[in-house]
């Protein structure tokens, strides 16, 4: 990492160490400081969210005001944003009139996207071999079909033999074991990534 900012780095390392030690060591003096820092970080993240949303508004404003690549779809964003923000500020986000109004637009749109996603997955499954010819793709497709059938309950009728039940129970252990293996690797990677930030080797915050 070539970015250098000694003050920001020192603050990040100091705060990080206090939060880590406050979490791991049962020292009464560290716990309130740790909670205070975590509260501050949540407030800062919320402010960052607000700044990023204003940035998004600016990006769409630029799109509709651009003479070269004008995008009229951005107008929907601008109008939606202004309407939602105005109603939220006037009546509050939990108001009984505002919330259903917003939800009645957002939920159908998101439901449509989920529907689109379902079709996308079916197409992707069909296209998998064209995208990547390998034995892993074969295993992936075979396991998808097997676990879809096993999870559907089609084998679990009153007449199902004990042997099939045992086989299904054993089959269900396989994805859990694989998932735990992957999650262990992810956890180790996360620890090392955090450690690099804590030691000042990675500085995503500094310029």
């Amino acid at each position: 990492m070539v970015m250098r900012s000694p003050v920001a780095t020192a603050i990040a390392i100091g705060v990080g160490l206090i939060v880590l030690l406050g979490y791991l060591l049962p020292l009464p003096v560290l716990d309130p400081i740790r909670r205070l820092f975590l509260d501050w970080s949540i407030i800062l993240a919320a402010v960052a969210g607000l700044v990023a949303i204003l940035n998004l508004f600016k990006a769409h404003w630029r799109k509709i005001s651009s003479s070269r690549e004008r995008d009229y779809y951005s107008l929907f964003f601008i109008l939606g944003f202004i309407l939602t923000a105005a109603l939220g500020l006037l009546f509050g986000p939990t108001d009984e009139r505002v919330r259903p109004l917003i939800m009645s637009i957002q939920l159908p749109v998101e439901a449509s996207l989920v529907g689109l996603l379902t079709i996308t997955f079916v197409v992707s499954a069909v296209r998998l071999f064209a995208l990547r010819r390998s034995w892993m793709s074969g295993i992936f497709l075979a396991s998808t079909i097997v676990f879809l059938l096993a999870g559907s309950g089609v084998f679990l009728t009153s007449g199902t033999s004990q042997v099939i039940k045992e086989v299904l129970a054993a089959l269900n252990i396989l994805p859990a074991a694989g998932a735990r293996g992957i999650l262990l690797g992810i956890a180790l990677g996360s620890v090392l990534t955090g450690l690099r930030v804590l030691l000042g080797m990675d500085r995503p915050y500094s310029e």
Partner: peptide
């Protein structure tokens, strides 16, 4: 299922090392 080059599990954390960001990433 949907990408040409997926990375599985902890291969995610190998990205900076393979992009030659710094010796610290290889050490990591």
């Amino acid at each position: 299922a949907t990408t040409k080059q997926p990375l599985i599990g902890e291969e995610l954390f190998a990205i900076p090392a393979y992009l030659q960001t710094s010796p610290a990433h290889v050490a990591s």
